[in-house]
């Protein structure tokens, strides 16, 4: 598959309510092409819902229960429907227990019509990628034989090999321990470099390490407010003085002080 140029994504006037409670109203957000946008916020504020709307996982039905949404749109600057250009990483690795590692990595190709030639080409690419992330021995193992960090690493490789230009990440490393999380953030920054990424997280440090733009989502109904734009190379070193200062001010902001 030809790698598409990473487009910008424009989210305009999105509203959603759930059980008569407005989650957010006329939300706007722009994801800059080839950059990582991060939404920080407490659990349950509606971060994942926004992500699921962009991924077209929440049905239009559900949307129309909200306010008037005639102006609502989700578009990208290459005019291809956004939901056809995304790949998605969830909180859990979502590996299928009946498939071994390499078949899990190639799941997308099994789920679409793929001819044998493409599949074998992808297979060798997948092997190389797994080798690169240090999972050479695990290629023919099944998920239950692997640790949480390994599994989420495989989920990252699965996302990468899909070759989609937009990646939506829903608290991808929240179930991992600090050290594994750190390694996987490095891997994300390297593997998914130059893609348009929306990262939803509640970990301020994760946002500071990976994001080009940080937004904070809060309130009821939820509002987005821009917090910070960073220009330095990712993954950032969390022990630098700048990071420590930013971390503390970000934390203050999240705590509402």
């Amino acid at each position: 598959m030809k790698l598409l140029e990473s487009p910008s994504v424009y989210i305009r006037n999105i509203s959603i309510s759930y059980q008569n409670k407005i989650i957010f109203h006329n939300m706007n957000l722009t994801l800059n092409g080839g950059q990582t946008t991060c939404i920080l916020g407490a659990s349950g504020v509606g971060k994942s819902t926004l992500l699921r709307i962009i991924a077209n996982l929440v049905s239009a039905n559900h949307l129309s229960q909200g306010k008037d949404h005639t102006n609502a749109s989700i578009s990208s600057d290459n005019l291809i429907p956004v939901c056809e250009q995304i790949s998605y990483i969830a909180q859990t690795d979502l590996l299928l227990p009946w498939l071994n590692v390499i078949d899990n990595v190639l799941l997308g190709f099994r789920l679409r019509k793929t001819n044998r030639k493409t599949l074998s080409a992808q297979q060798s690419l997948a092997k190389n990628l797994l080798k690169e992330v240090g999972l050479e021995q695990a290629i023919h193992m099944h998920p239950h034989q692997l640790s949480g960090g390994m599994k989420q690493r495989i989920a990252l490789v699965r996302t990468f090999i899909e070759g989609k230009p937009i990646v939506l990440m829903d608290e991808p490393f929240s179930s991992l321990d600090t050290i594994n999380r750190f390694h996987l953030q490095d891997l994300t920054a390297n593997l998914l470099h130059k893609k348009t990424i929306l990262l939803v997280t509640h970990d301020p440090l994760e946002a500071l390490r990976l994001a080009d733009h940080i937004y904070i989502m809060s309130g009821n109904p939820a509002m987005l407010s821009s917090f910070l734009t960073l220009n330095s190379q990712t993954p950032r070193d969390p022990s630098s003085e700048e990071m420590i200062t930013l971390y503390s001010s970000l934390l203050q902001r999240l705590l509402g002080r």
């Binding site: 991924a55 996982l57 939901c83 056809e84 998605y88 969830a90 979502l94 799941l107 789920l111 679409r112």
Partner: peptide, 29 residues
Amino acid sequence: TETGWLDLAKTMNANKFRMFWHIRIPAAL
């Protein structure tokens, strides 16, 4: 079927039949 798996398959642009064959049936075994 675990909704997470179906969501994942949906973002991979799977059609109904393939989603059934590759995910829902093995998950139901």
